[in-house]
């Protein structure tokens, strides 16, 4: 993938793979939003709640979703072909 001119058109497989990588790249952003987003509800003035259970369950839920998604992407993108 050096100086050879690249065709602007990829075959469907490479195209799919590239979009999958895009999705994999989006995953941490998605995760970051999910982890930060609920904060205002929980921490307003620090007196909103003393019950840690829902928040803990929520965080565990987001966490496991992220792990599963990463696993699926890792599996789908296992073929170590050219990526860039």
């Amino acid at each position: 993938m050096t100086a050879e001119p690249k065709s602007p058109y990829l075959d469907v497989k490479s195209y799919r793979r590239k979009r999958l990588i895009d999705m994999a790249r989006l995953l941490p952003i998605f995760g970051g939003v999910l982890v930060i987003f609920p904060l205002p509800f929980l921490f307003v003035n620090g007196v909103l709640t003393t019950d840690a259970t829902p928040m803990a369950l929520y965080l565990f839920g987001v966490w496991i979703v992220l792990i599963l998604a990463a696993m699926i992407f890792a599996r789908l993108l296992r073929d170590p072909a050219t990526d860039d």
């Binding site: 990588i21 994999a24 790249r25 995953l27 941490p28 952003i29 995760g31 970051g32 982890v35 840690a52 928040m55 803990a56 965080l59 966490w63 992220l66 792990i67 998604a69 990463a70």
Partner: peptide
């Protein structure tokens, strides 16, 4: 500090999930 320990683990999780970056 309540749920703070989550953050210590979630930060690396996000970095590793986003290993493509």
């Amino acid at each position: 500090n309540g749920l703070e320990f989550f953050a210590i683990y979630l930060g690396p999780t996000l970095v590793f999930v986003g290993w493509w970056w």
